[in-house]
Simulated scan of single mutants.
Amino acid sequence: MTRTTLFAIITALGVLVLAGAGVYMMWSQLGVTMSVHGWIAYGLGALASIALSVGLFWLVFHSSRSGQDDIDRPEDLDG
């Protein structure tokens, strides 16, 4: 793993922690209390959302790089 990749991962995790702390502070300012089960559900929902977006982006890049998106017939070209 390169230093750039490691730095990007650490930075992304730091931003995620800051966002979670911001959500917690905002909700506590509004008087909203959430149980441990609520925080677990919130975290699992965020994790599932991130996993879905990573998976879809990976599929897009994979299909583009493997030639799945290439035009096979010249008559399909516009113009």
Rank of each mutant, 00 (worst) to 15 (best):
Met1Tyr: 03
Thr2Arg: 04
Thr2Ile: 09
Thr2Glu: 04
Thr2Phe: 09
Thr2Asn: 08
Arg3Met: 05
Thr4Gln: 13
Thr4Phe: 14
Thr5Gln: 06
Phe7Arg: 01
Phe7Pro: 00
Phe7Tyr: 07
Ala8Gln: 14
Ile9Thr: 05
Ile9Met: 06
Ile10Cys: 10
Ile10Phe: 15
Thr11Trp: 13
Thr11Lys: 15
Ala12Trp: 06
Gly14Leu: 13
Val15Thr: 12
Val15Glu: 03
Leu16Val: 06
Leu16His: 07
Leu16Lys: 02
Leu18Glu: 04
Leu18Ala: 15
Gly20Phe: 13
Gly20Asn: 10
Gly20Trp: 09
Gly20Ala: 10
Val23Asn: 02
Val23Ala: 06
Tyr24Pro: 00
Tyr24Gly: 00
Met25Gly: 02
Met25Pro: 00
Met26Gln: 06
Met26Asp: 08
Trp27Arg: 12
Trp27Pro: 00
Trp27Asn: 08
Gln29Phe: 13
Gln29Asn: 09
Leu30Ala: 12
Leu30Lys: 08
Leu30Ile: 11
Gly31His: 04
Gly31Asp: 08
Gly31Met: 05
Val32Lys: 09
Val32Gln: 11
Thr33Trp: 08
Met34Gly: 01
Ser35Ala: 15
Ser35Glu: 12
Val36Tyr: 08
Val36His: 08
Val36Cys: 01
His37Gly: 09
His37Gln: 14
His37Arg: 05
Gly38Pro: 03
Trp39His: 07
Ile40Thr: 06
Ile40Ser: 04
Ile40Ala: 03
Ala41Cys: 07
Gly43Phe: 12
Leu44His: 03
Gly45Lys: 01
Gly45His: 02
Gly45Ala: 11
Ala46Trp: 05
Leu47Asn: 01
Leu47Lys: 01
Ala48Asn: 05
Ser49Phe: 14
Ser49His: 02
Ile50Phe: 13
Ala51Ile: 04
Ala51Asn: 00
Ala51Lys: 00
Ala51Cys: 02
Leu52Ser: 04
Leu52His: 00
Leu52Arg: 05
Gly55Trp: 03
Leu56Glu: 02
Leu56Phe: 10
Phe57Thr: 07
Val60Trp: 07
Val60Lys: 11
Phe61His: 03
Phe61Asp: 13
Phe61Met: 08
Phe61Cys: 03
Phe61Ile: 11
His62Glu: 11
Ser63Pro: 00
Ser64Pro: 00
Ser64Phe: 15
Arg65Asn: 10
Arg65Pro: 01
Ser66Cys: 05
Ser66Met: 05
Gly67Ile: 10
Gly67Leu: 05
Gln68Lys: 15
Gln68Arg: 15
Asp69Ile: 15
Asp72Glu: 15
Asp72Val: 14
Asp72Thr: 09
Asp72Pro: 06
Arg73Tyr: 14
Pro74Lys: 06
Pro74Trp: 07
Asp76Ser: 12
Asp76Met: 13
Asp76Gly: 05
Asp78Pro: 06
